[in-house]
Design a protein around this nucleic acid. Structure first.
Lengths: 147, 147
DNA sequence: TTAATGACGACTATTATAGTCGTCTATATT
DNA sequence: AATATAGACGACTATAATAGTCGTCATTAA
């Protein structure tokens, strides 16, 4: 459903959100903690940086950090970055990515209905979710020790 | 979003539904009418037949026909046939297809939330739609000629 | 100056997709 | 029976995407 890049990116973002008050995080640490191949993670983080979600610093004491607040990072943006825009036929979406290959743009093509409904479902879901939602979900359960 | 097989299958099913009272339809005709490579369409129709959606007859006067009523053919079943089951991590779905590669099954993996919500959205959408819905959508507009 | 650390282009291996080709089998018609 | 018609089916191929890897360079702090 998602490419590994997208999945790794989301996991890395969650981790960075958790650690966001501890200074820059090393790629190497993220790699080990999340089980993501280091060189691969490098590319991913760089993309996220270019997208304006992360900041980085080279040299000793360097690393990566969240640049925006978790509630301002939409999951839809991450997915789009790595998996590209939802492949919806141009008949459904005006800002078309490529022309529809299956239906010949016929105004009655029955595929349109499925694609349109699906697009609505998926983007509704991904647009609504932010990094904050995932961070809260993945929070360690809080034990309130009695005494 | 969908493979060509899935898209072609849906288009062929819609066409077969439209023609379902005219006797068997030739692969060659379907191929031309929908712009689907003939040999490729062959495979697709055969899969749909094995799935119990179509019947076929060899020899002269043969061809393919819908075996079930359009309202009894779920789009979800077509998509699943060609694109496989939604790749949802095993942590989300008990009937797991393959174990989750990205999250290590951790009960707090933040990916779970996205995957779970997305699966809910998508299968809700595809389970609800039947071939009948698409047929109605793709019906030629009816002209009621005055006189 | 040096060690630490990210930046980045180029490369590779594996897999999935979207077909194609050739031949075989079943059926209706004559 | 012979023949033309039509689907069945296994094997093959070409292209592209995915999931990485490798080597080297550029920055920065100490």
């Amino acid at each position: 459903m998602f490419s590994m890049k997208t999945k790794y990116a989301i996991k890395a973002l969650i981790r960075l959100a958790h650690k966001r008050h501890n200074g820059p995080v090393l790629i190497a640490d993220l790699s080990v903690e999340e089980g993501i191949p280091k060189k691969f993670l490098e590319n991913i983080l760089l993309s996220l940086k270019n997208e304006g979600m992360l900041a980085s610093r080279k040299g000793k004491g360097g690393g990566y950090a969240l640049l925006r607040r978790p509630e301002d990072i939409r999951i839809a943006q991450v997915v789009q970055l790595f998996d590209g825009p939802l492949a919806v036929p141009s008949c459904v979406k005006m800002s078309m990515v490529r022309s529809c290959n299956a239906c010949g743009e016929s105004p009655q093509c029955g595929l349109r209905l499925v694609m349109a409904e699906l697009k609505e479902s998926i983007s509704g879901c991904l647009d609504r979710l932010t990094l904050l939602d995932l961070v809260l979900e993945s929070e360690e359960p809080v034990f309130d020790p009695v005494i």
